[in-house]
Nucleic acid binder design. Structure first.
Length: 425
RNA sequence: GGAGAGGUGGCAGAGCGGUUGAAUGCGGCGGUCUUGAAAACCGUUGAGGUGUUACAGCCUCCGGGGGUUCGAAUCCCUCCCUCUCCGCCA
């Protein structure tokens, strides 16, 4: 959520940001409601001040044994008037908040302005030694490999749950588990994050806090009976841990890493992109979340990005980093990098991680603040997160890149101590 | 799921219709004293909104929402949460 004061004072900058993000511009409507709201507040408060003053006077009169009937009658009328104004105020304020919830975060000034995902900018690329894009081997894709090696069972997943719910079998399951443990350990021990194992179902407030609701409602599963939502990412429960808290300045930065299953309806996205692991309704992801002081958030963004990249370097998977342009930036993000891993069989890059700075957008929604000794008032923290990483896309690259000419898969060296075996097949 | 108890400032804990935004204690901050520290003593110490160049002023907030009343932390309704006991259960 943007600060209404900021919108009031910088309407043109807000309009431009909204336009660049290709979202709906409601700024004029918002400003009109804001003005109406402030008028109502002034009128109501004037009456309330009068009422408070007179009511105290009534107390005094009664204590002195005098009559106050006429003043009481007058205040009854004032009370009615106040109620009318307050009802109107509630209505106007509600409309205003609703509109504000749909206003996207503004892109940071460093973000390239663009029209489509084609306009994303590749900022770096890393290839393992000896790696070559050109190879005369015929690569089996991850679906064929998964089937041949009896590691992945998409058909049975579809039977027990539906399409997009893969089952990991045997060494496939072990490899998945190894990958999760390896990534967690790396972030905890080498990069210094604190581990969180969060709930996988959250309430509506949490989904609003990080910005999934109301805008992305169609992409979320919902357990309506209990008012809960299966999380689309661990970002939601972890960031919301500190919802409505005022942290101490010296507690920052807070750096969490957590594993969760992630649930996404992926409404309306069928077709080629959705085969196998490329688009699924449930997948596993290790997520990093940071709560930091505003002035450090862009340095922290670079640090999270490097922490995510480190996973791929350890695994020796080729990857590239894209800086997203304004049109591809998500609703809540001010700046975002995507990290894509190489899929030889698909012959293309696959998004395996997304690293974002939300500045104070989520913090304002979730009311997460901090206060230092020298500070007069609490301020909103900046929140960031990054996948570190999502296993489904990563698994595609690992299976395809580590396959041998005989159709076996070598377990990446850093995972071997986790799996207890070195080769699958 | 059933029965009961309770939710007040950073924490503990009073208040139960009228100068109570809230006693008291602890903690925090500032000061006096001290070579320094502790102790003691004095002062101070919540948030949001509106408004102002900035102050001031004013409004709101005692789990959330609604109601009664001239006036509510205090009374009523409702929802949520926590704790205890019973039942069920990985």
């Amino acid at each position: 959520m943007l600060d209404i004061k900021f919108i009031r004072e910088n309407p043109e900058a807000v309009k431009e940001g909204i336009k660049n993000k290709k979202e709906k511009d409601t700024v004029d409507e918002i400003l009109a409601l804001d003005k109406e709201r402030r008028n109502l507040i002034q009128n109501a408060e004037e009456l309330k001040a009068k009422k408070n003053k007179v009511s105290k006077e009534v107390g005094r009169l009664k204590a002195a044994g005098e009559s106050a009937d006429d003043v009481m009658a007058e205040m009854r009328a004032v009370g009615e008037e106040i109620k009318t104004l307050d009802d109107k105020l509630r209505e106007v304020a509600g409309k205003l908040t609703e509109l504000l919830m749909w206003v996207p975060n503004l892109p940071h000034k460093s973000v390239p302005v663009g029209q489509t995902e084609e306009d994303n900018v590749e900022v770096s690329r890393w290839l393992p030694e000896d790696f070559s894009f050109e190879s005369d081997e015929k690569f089996l894709d991850h679906i064929e490999l998964g089937k041949k090696l009896n590691m992945l069972d998409f058909e049975r997943g579809a039977k027990i749950s539906g399409s997009g719910f893969p089952v990991y079998v045997g060494k496939g399951a072990s490899l998945e588990r190894a990958l999760i443990n390896f990534m967690l350990d790396l972030h905890i021990n080498k990069h210094g994050y604190k581990e969180i194992f969060p709930p996988f179902l959250v309430n509506e407030e949490s989904m609003k806090g990080t910005g999934q609701l109301p805008k992305m409602a169609d992409d979320m599963y919902a357990v309506e009976r209990d008012g809960l939502y299966p999380i689309p990412t661990a970002e939601v429960p972890i960031t919301n841990m500190h919802r409505s808290e005022t942290l101490k300045e010296d507690e920052l930065p807070i750096e969490y890493v957590g594993y969760s299953a992630c649930f996404r309806r992926e409404a309306g996205s069928y077709g080629k992109e959705s085969k196998g692991f490329l688009r699924v309704h449930q997948f596993n992801k290790v997520e990093m979340v940071k709560l930091v002081k505003p002035e450090t958030s862009y340095d922290e963004l670079e640090k999270i990005r490097l922490d995510a990249e480190d996973v791929l370097r350890e695994l020796k998977i080729p990857y590239r980093v894209l800086e997203l342009n304004t049109s591809d930036l998500s609703f809540a993000a001010a700046k975002c990098y995507d990290i894509e891993t190489w899929s030889p069989a698909e012959n293309k890059w696959l998004e395996a991680s997304s690293v974002s700075n939300f500045e104070d957008f989520q913090a304002r929604r979730a009311n997460i603040r901090f206060k230092g000794k020298e500070m007069k008032k609490p301020e909103f923290v900046h929140t960031l997160n990054g996948s570190g990483l999502a296993t489904s896309r990563l698994m595609v690259s690992i299976l395809e890149i580590y396959q041998t000419p005989e159709g076996k898969v070598i377990v990446p060296r850093v995972l071997q101590k986790y799996t207890g075996f070195n080769v699958i097949g």
